[in-house]
Structures are given as C-alpha cells and as structure tokens.
Amino acid sequence: MSIKTSFAPSLAADYQDNGVVHLRSLLSPDEVAEIRDAFMEQVQRDRTVGHDDHVGDDDVLARYPRFVHPHRRTDLDVGRIAQRWMLDPRIVGPIVDMVGPVFAAQSMFYFKPPTARGQALHQDNIFLQAHPETCIAAWIAIDDCDGENGGLKVVPGSHRYEIVCPGEADPEESFTSTEIELPEGFTAEQTELAAGDALFFHGSMVHGSGPNRSADRFRRSLIFHYVPVDSVEIARFYNPLLALDGSEVTIAEAADGGACGDGWEPVAPH
C-alpha cells in the first residue's frame, strides 16, 4: 500500500482506503515564506512561547522548541497566522470532504533544525482522545521534506487499528519517550513533500520521523488537528475547540486514559 496524491472527488475514498492523502502545492511560495518568516522571527526574538519538552540546554530543540496551540496567541503575529490558516477553506475544505463537518482542535509548529532528533512512531488520538470518532491531521510542509532532513514517515493502512499502547523509544533518535510497535504486515513509508504540500491523515494512523541528518536544512511544518462536530468528548488540553467561523466551542472532557488510553483495545483490520 502506498501514499496517493489525491484529487477531488477521490479524497474521501483515498482517505478511507489509506488513512493518508497527499495534496501538492496547497500553499503558494509567498504564503509559505510568510509563515516561515513569522515563526523564525518569533523563535529568535522570544522562544519562551514554545512548548517545554524538557530537553537539555545543549539540545538544539531548546533553541527551537515546537510551538503548541499558537492559534490561541492572537496577540502575536504567529498566533494570528496560525488561526487564519487553521480555518482557511483550502485546509478545511479537503478535511470536510474526507470526514464531514469538523471543529478545529489544535495548532502546532515544528522547526526541526539540523541535528534535531525526530519523533518516534505514534498515533495522534492517544493524545486528543476524541470520541466516538477520531481526529484528523493536516501536516503542511514549510520546507522541502525528505528522509535526510527528518521528513515524516507514515504507515498507510494502520488507521484501521485503534489506539495501541506504546513501548519505549530510542532517546538518541526521538525527543519523545514512547514508540508504537507496528502491526504485523505494515511498514513505515518515507514521505517526500515540497514546501506548500500537505498531508492529511487519520488519528489512528501510525506516523513519526527520524532525526534531521542534513547539514543545513530545516524541516519546518505547520500542523493542525480537527475532530468531527459529533465528537462527544476530548482531552482537557484541547478545549475550547474552534468552530469554522472562529467561535469557541467546548465539549465534554475525556477521562484521563493514562499512557495507553484505557478503554482502547487494538482491533483487527477491516
């Protein structure tokens, strides 16, 4: 099974079959440059708005921490940009085509400079705990991304599994501490995206990335997560959600499921 570059009206079918869809040139070079320049200016001026991943002071990720929920910082240029793109029809439109009406749940920006570790294989909904459905991610490349600079790896078809309990990750390779063991018969595929491309993928799809082994190439990405409007609960961290008109929506909080998401059990593919 391989990743498809999809065009409407096949979006929903490709998403259902593979759990991941690649759309090329979703953003223009000028739009990519605006996003890149705003986030670089912010992290160089004041990186305290970044998320504390408890890395050492000598880790390059201490200088370039990922930004989590920048859309909530509308007092900052990066916050206004993140919220604008989070609700932009070019991002939301394909998602609605794939899963129906949604609320916006999360924004993130990863810098991933040279020498930065990657993020071990994982499934997003173990964090969001959106029920009864799952989340969907929009992963937008701000740089050309490939295996050398730590581009995303995905496991097409793994979305047919529910959340599985992770084991320990290799700390030399991943800044996060847990890693999913791949279901039998599945392999991780290296993606290659040009700046402005986007990957859309299912909340149960296994994905991750290796370290940035390039000499001088960043692997920056702007990432959004969405949940269907009929979701009945989500982890506390993601409330309030945003409706597509920008208004805030609060749904019930999911119980703390622990490291493995208590109540979720692996199921056979169908």
Results as ranks from 00 to 15, higher is better:
190 Q>T: 08
95 I>A: 00
37 D>C: 07
121 L>S: 09
80 R>I: 04
185 G>T: 02
161 Y>P: 07
45 R>W: 13
83 Q>T: 13
195 A>S: 04
255 A>N: 01
164 V>G: 15
169 A>C: 08
19 G>N: 05
185 G>M: 03
243 A>G: 13
199 L>Y: 00
51 H>V: 05
75 D>A: 07
36 R>P: 03
84 R>W: 10
66 R>W: 11
215 A>Y: 03
110 Y>M: 12
90 R>Y: 06
228 P>G: 06
44 Q>Y: 06
8 A>I: 07
194 A>R: 15
128 L>Q: 12
177 S>D: 14
16 Q>H: 14
142 I>V: 05
63 R>G: 13
260 C>A: 01
50 G>I: 08
234 I>M: 00
176 T>A: 14
169 A>Y: 04
152 L>F: 06
250 T>S: 11
174 S>P: 06
167 G>C: 05
20 V>K: 01
57 D>V: 11
166 P>N: 09
172 E>R: 09
253 E>I: 00
137 A>F: 09
217 R>Q: 10
257 G>K: 02
127 F>S: 15
238 Y>M: 03
232 V>W: 04
78 V>S: 03
42 Q>T: 13
137 A>V: 14
148 E>M: 12
148 E>P: 08
15 Y>S: 00
74 T>I: 06
225 H>N: 07
27 L>Y: 00
213 R>S: 10
93 G>P: 06
33 A>S: 12
266 P>A: 12
57 D>N: 11
36 R>E: 11
244 L>H: 14
262 D>N: 12
77 D>E: 15
184 E>G: 07
231 S>H: 06
68 V>P: 05
50 G>M: 08
239 N>Y: 01
248 E>M: 11
114 P>A: 14
267 V>I: 14
239 N>D: 06
252 A>G: 10
215 A>N: 10
28 S>E: 08
91 I>H: 01
125 N>Y: 00
142 I>G: 02
233 E>T: 04
146 D>Q: 04
